[in-house]
Amino acid sequence: MSGAPAGQRHPLLRMIAARLGIGVFTLFVISTLIFLAISLLPGDIAQQVLGQSATPETVAAFRRELGLDQPLFWRYLDWIGGVLHGDFGQSLANGRPVAALLAARLGNTMFLAAYAALIAVPLAVTLGLLSALWRGRMFDRITNVLTLSAISLPEFLIAYILMFLLAVRMGWFPSIADPGASPGFGEMLNRTFLPAITLVLVVTAHMMRMTRAAVVNVMGNPYVTMARLKGASRWRVVTRHALPNALAPIVNVVALNIAWLITGVVIVEVVFVYPGLGQLMVDSVTNRDIPVVQACALIFAAVYILLNLLADVVAIAANPRLLHPR
């Protein structure tokens, strides 16, 4: 066995620590990019917020108040220093702390993403495994066509179709997903069912096709033939022999899709009037509410980095060559 000498940490832990370090560094680089990009936006923020009728004196005073008269570098240090203390600044639109504003929205976004992911990931992986098992047969072709159609339709169209069928015609689910004042868990599940299903339809195809491709790829290996020659059933061969060796690409695609569920669902949020982060960010961009935009962008970047880190760790943990060196 590996017999790691004392004082030498497990390679997996070392790897996680290294990746976390790189992740933090990446986040730092992204924070400067976000800050630079926003500072390059045309127009004057103070002017924008105060409106055309404001006198030059009020604008200048407001600029001082915002610190906009300071050099870019100091403004960045001021902002990032605050972020490191958990202070994202105040919203320009309503003066509330950005952190509080985000907290509520982030919760909503996470709820919807988790809801969709909990349905989509098992569904996609199972469909992918079954298609790999029945490769080239009817089931495989039908799944292929259905999932491809789902991914090809624009998500708002899917949303409206579902809304029309399940909300307007059948009346089973509400067409507006605004949770309002703290509803119960069951009520939340019911109200957000339509956006969740819309998202499931959008992300399933990608994950399912990757599962199928990765498993089919592994199925060509001699050890898969060996398992069949030991008398294993085809389902056992696919799930026990092929899947563990196909995990790395699948986990990566799953992580990318979950990241998208958290960061990229603004259209679905708008269609179902669901108060998530995406909507908040779009509104803030329109309002030139810079602190909110910056905070959202930073959170989205952190989500991507963390999920990819997680995918890397799972992929490595699934590979005995790395987990158990010679």
């Binding site: 050890y223 398992a227 005995p320």
Partner: peptide
């Protein structure tokens, strides 16, 4: 080397 499952 190719006929043993690397993950088991």
């Amino acid at each position: 080397a190719a006929s043993f499952n690397p993950a088991w």
